[in-house]
């Protein structure tokens, strides 16, 4: 204790104390923070359209309407949920399979969530029901999204022309107008990327098979898989956000370390 008392006036003491405090606060917060609410849906194992319809009525109809005809919020021309006839099973698989739907509350944009509320079977049933309303894009086959069969170099060229302006060169995501954004493509499965291109969720345009052939889509998946899996040759990526994060790093860490060295250099030795 004496040693501690002797060091409490050390110049570094405040910094150490501050770090300790921040760390403890963080640790306490993570220990006591409320857990996200558990999904309340019950497992209903069925593939049939009827089961899908039941699931839809129970979970989706409040926004999309009892027969998926879409509903308005009642104010202006805002919609609570769009009509779903013709969006196809691919759209359902994408929206529900990435945790975007069901949305807990209406917002500018449905965010991806790891907390997927339905089982694969239930999603398939929902998709079957929506696909029964009107024909639309199908969930792609395993082969159609197999990255090993695509050409990453061609995919890269296609990605840069068609995708990079919103999703950034490394798929890190980017800003759109008024709070909307193009999400990060890191760790998104090939199937979901294919479905997003085929159905054009939310702000994203549709890339139908005439615009981008299934082979081209597979090339893009191959490209994204390659850059996701490859090493970062230069070290930490700083989020692959471009010069902004690099500049911030130079100011905070580069300058911080060098000024720290300069202070040590200028201080009198004990």
């Amino acid at each position: 204790m004496n040693a501690l008392a002797a060091r409490r006036r050390h110049p570094a003491a405040i910094a150490v104390l501050l770090m300790l405090g921040l760390f403890l606060t963080g640790a306490l917060y993570s220990a006591f923070a409320p857990e996200p609410a558990e999904a309340t849906t019950q497992a209903l194992a069925s593939q049939s359209v009827e089961e899908g319809k039941a699931l839809f009525r129970a979970n989706c109809a409040s926004c999309h309407g009892v027969n998926a005809e879409g509903r308005s919020t009642g104010t202006d021309d805002q919609i609570a949920g769009p009509a779903l006839a013709g969006v196809g099973a691919a759209a359902v698989d994408f929206q529900v399979g990435t945790g975007r739907m069901p949305m807990t509350q209406p917002g500018t944009q449905a965010a991806r969530s790891d907390d997927v509320k339905f089982t694969d079977e239930q999603i398939a049933a929902l998709g079957a029901y929506i696909a029964s309303l009107a024909p639309g894009p199908e969930v792609p086959s395993e082969e159609a999204v197999d990255p090993t069969q695509g050409d990453p170099a061609t995919g890269g060229e296609l990605f840069r022309v068609n995708c990079a302006m919103c999703h950034n060169f490394a798929g890190s995501g980017g800003a759109l107008t008024r709070g909307k954004y193009a999400p990060s493509l890191k760790d998104v499965s090939g199937k979901h990327i294919y479905e997003a291109m085929a159905t054009g969720p939310q702000s994203m345009p549709v890339f139908n098979d005439a615009n981008m052939t299934p082979e081209s889509k597979r090339d893009i998946i191959a490209f994204l898989t390659t850059i996701n899996e490859q090493e970062n040759p230069g070290g930490m990526t700083l989020g692959s956000l471009g010069p902004v994060s690099e500049g911030l790093f130079a100011w905070v860490f580069g300058l911080g370390i060098l000024v720290g060295c300069a202070v040590w250099l200028g201080a009198k030795a004990a």
Binding site: E157, L158, V161, N162, G200, V206, A210, N211
Partner: peptide, 19 residues
């Protein structure tokens, strides 16, 4: 762009964008 293929009007569905 970059495939260099012509575009049929019927291929351009609502909501799609072509470079």
């Amino acid at each position: 762009d970059p495939e260099n293929q012509p575009i049929k009007a019927s291929d351009v569905t609502i909501g799609s964008v072509f470079h």
